[in-house]
Design a protein around this nucleic acid. Structure first.
Lengths: 260, 260
DNA sequence: AAGTGGTCTAGACCACTAG
DNA sequence: TAGTGGTCTAGACCACTTT
């Protein structure tokens, strides 16, 4: 191999492009193993460092992933997921009942942190219910949902089995709350060690984060939620429709999940 | 320094945490320079490689950025931006008229690619208008907007100066189109060399991508757009309101941009 | 010219996986 | 045990920025 390494493009970028060309989607099926790092080293005649830089770049982009002691493998294409806000993950589950499930990791009262107290309009020392759930699709961890709710509004929540049932239905039907609106922020985040463990990715992986603050009809904050998706595995979908002269756009969340 | 490097956490991760603690937001103001790589090497007594791994991790997360020949610098916090779909960037400009602007990079007819033809319902060989614009906020590149529209629907577009005025207003007022709805996908992307140049980031940087396919009232595809935001600098904002028994959620796009 | 980050080599040891 | 990826060291040269 070796080939002409003309011009000024960095060697590891060039190697990355070669690997993408040879093993990218299409030429190698999802799940297939790439050559080992030492094999790539030899075939291109470069040091291990540049091979690792190239593979790391491909992994960051979600094209491949690596497993210690096993090798690097081609990833399947991204899943498409309707944006989750006020319409819960549970609603999605009902649509794809066969392969979606929820597992509760934590459901217990804790003392608020300062940042949480500000968001939920609580004072220092108050209690909130911390509800942490992992949503699985086809058995694989897909989404990490972290919710915090004022304990005073849902004292019965920690005792409740949230492995089934919608959180929002519970809040409305059994806590007498009437959810009205939410402010949401979508951003890129990176997996902490704990999040990485739950989502089955390596620490520092790219995540899509939807942060939401849900309000009661009285304007009282009811839930602060953070929903983490694997950035290499998901697209968020929403459908928007334009209505008359309104200086904004109406969006229906939770449209179809058909492929692009 | 050196300190106890007990247990099993990787050295570069530990260094990263130390740096974050010492120089993270709060202790060092945005724009301030961090110690050089060799200074960090010496102060921790580690090799340059682990220092670079730690700095790269911080850069990926948007905490810092590095400039060749100059050093590493603390980043300002993320901007908050309402989701752009059907309501154009131009609308945002009007809201913050002082510091937002658009610059057109390309506006010309080209032959469709296969992927584009599929999305826009065109046949091979047809022409589309390629409109590429960079939105700036406070003079700095903020968002890269890449639009493709069937040439037959807007023959006058390439001759039009799109540095001012809204694309959607142009389509409705001067092309006789009535925009109805759009399908949108939000995902993580990574900057190509070209995108990186336009956005003032390094290749491979994390981006937030909104892909949108906008339809006419007759159901005809009118525009395929891709809007790229710097992932380390932006949050997308939307507000959702729940309405009666609809199995979905109404979202008003383009709410206020007040800070979290 | 001096200092900075960007790239690359060579070699080592470790942790994990699989036969 | 052999092979894999994960981590780390030491040293080198280059491209770029600043003085």
């Amino acid at each position: 191999m070796a080939a002409q390494r003309g011009s000024k493009v960095a060697l590891h970028r060039w190697i990355k492009e070669q690997l993408e060309r040879k093993f990218g989607a299409g030429s190698l099926a999802p799940g297939q193993r790439l050559p080992s790092e030492s094999e790539i080293m030899n075939s291109f005649g470069v040091s291990r460092h540049v091979v690792r830089l190239a593979l790391a770049e491909l992994a960051k982009e979600g094209v491949i992933h690596t497993e210690r002691g096993r090798g690097s493998f081609v990833n399947p294409p991204k899943e498409i997921h309707p944006i989750t806000s006020l319409t819960s993950y549970h609603t999605l589950m009902e649509e794809r009942s066969l392969d979606a499930s929820i597992r509760v990791l934590r459901n217990r009262p804790v003392t608020v942190t300062k940042a949480l107290a500000t968001r939920l309009g609580l004072v220092d020392g108050e209690q909130v219910v911390e509800l942490i759930r992992v949503g699985r699709i086809s058995g694989k961890p897909a989404v990490l949902m972290v919710s915090h709710l004022p304990y005073s509004l849902c004292k019965g929540l920690p005792a409740r089995d949230m492995n089934t049932g919608s959180l929002y239905e519970y809040l409305e039907d059994e806590c007498g709350l009437s959810l009205a609106y939410a402010e949401n922020y979508i951003e890129v985040a990176f997996a902490t060690r704990e999040q990485a463990r739950y989502l089955g990715v390596s620490p520092g992986s790219t995540l899509l984060l939807i942060e939401g603050l849900v309000y009661d009809q009285s304007g009282q904050p009811v839930e602060f939620s953070r929903v983490f998706y694997r950035g290499d595995r998901f697209k968020l979908f929403f459908e928007s429709t334009k209505e008359d002269g309104v200086p904004g756009t109406k969006v229906r969340i939770g449209g179809r999940t058909s492929p692009l």
